[in-house]
């Protein structure tokens, strides 16, 4: 009897520990919704989401976050456009062509790329990329959307490579053998047989990259210039993440400005939840195969 009581208590403790992640997700969701809704109510949903002007400290403050949303979308799209082809081709090379030793060395390098703190990317971006863009394109200030896109492309590269390699490695050898036996060259086999067979996993890699890019704050903050302009390649811009980060320190608690920052975070959170759902969908599909 006593033993059963003890076992049940232990079971209860582990159940609580197991539910902790669910609790955390609920906590985050509830806090973001509760603190994000008031400002949206006060500003009006349409004005907030589609307003083209953000002037939170003006005498007649304006809280339109369309510039941030578009910057985040364009910035992420740009990073994907550059990062995915490079990452994907590297993954095919490492998974199918490279010798064991080469693969081990480059994979270690990719892991290092994944581990470098985002502020280090930001720092190098500030001192190499930004002056570089200024010189090459002859613009007065190199910090802006283009610099952010390049930094983000580099930052998502390791995610794309690693997830794609896992997917490509899992392609059954028989598929490739069959293709080779039918007279296709190795390269044709990789791209016309292996890649299509691994497409769910590669899609998951892309979605993961989208999530990383849209959520990155500090590196972008250091190279994007931080002015609430509508997005254009050489102009200083603000992302959803940097809009939150750059004004949080000096907004006073309870003010409409701070509440609006929480509303921005809520919008970002909704984006991320949609991306997570997509990621889960692709991962599940690639596992079922």
């Amino acid at each position: 009897m006593k033993k059963r009581l003890f076992e049940n208590t232990v079971h209860g403790i582990f159940l609580m520990l197991g539910l902790i992640t669910v609790g955390c997700v609920l906590l985050i969701t509830v806090y973001l919704i509760v603190s994000g809704i008031p400002a949206i109510k006060e500003i009006g949903l349409a004005n907030f989401l589609f307003g083209k002007e953000w002037a939170s400290t003006a005498t007649e403050p304006k809280f339109g976050i369309l510039p941030f949303i578009l910057t985040s979308v364009y910035g992420t799209a740009g990073a994907i456009l550059i990062g995915v082809p490079i990452g994907f081709l590297t993954a095919v090379f490492l998974s199918k062509v490279a010798e064991k030793k080469t693969r081990a060395v480059i994979e270690a390098a990719v892991n290092l790329l994944a581990g470098i703190p985002s502020v280090v990317y930001g720092l190098v971006g500030m001192l190499v990329l930004v002056p570089g863009i200024r010189e090459i394109f002859g613009v007065p200030d190199g910090s802006g959307l283009l610099a952010a896109i390049i930094v983000l492309a580099v930052m998502i590269l390791p995610n794309i490579i690693k997830v794609s390699i896992t997917a490509l490695d899992a392609v059954p050898k028989e598929y490739e053998d069959a293709s080779l036996a039918l007279g296709a060259t190795p390269t044709e086999t990789y791209f016309k047989v292996s890649v299509p067979a691994a497409k769910s996993g590669i899609a998951a890699a892309v979605v993961l990259g989208v999530g990383r890019a849209i959520g990155e704050a500090m590196a972008v903050m250091m190279v994007a210039g931080n002015v609430a302009n509508m997005p254009s390649l050489f102009e200083s811009v603000r992302f959803l993440t940097t809009a939150v980060a750059s004004e949080m320190a000096y907004s006073s608690p309870g003010s409409l400005q701070r509440n609006a920052l929480f509303s921005i975070a809520l919008v970002l959170f909704l984006f991320i939840m949609m991306i997570n759902a997509a990621l889960n969908f692709f991962l599940k599909r690639s596992k079922e195969k």
Binding site: T21, V22, Y31, L32, I214, G215, F262, A265, L268, I272
Partner: peptide, 21 residues
């Protein structure tokens, strides 16, 4: 599956949102 989904969600949330919460 609920717990695993929650854990995957946590690993996808950007750090700036963790910072705010």
């Amino acid at each position: 599956s609920i717990i695993e989904y929650a854990s995957e969600t946590l690993s996808g949330i950007p750090s700036i949102i963790y910072g705010l919460v």
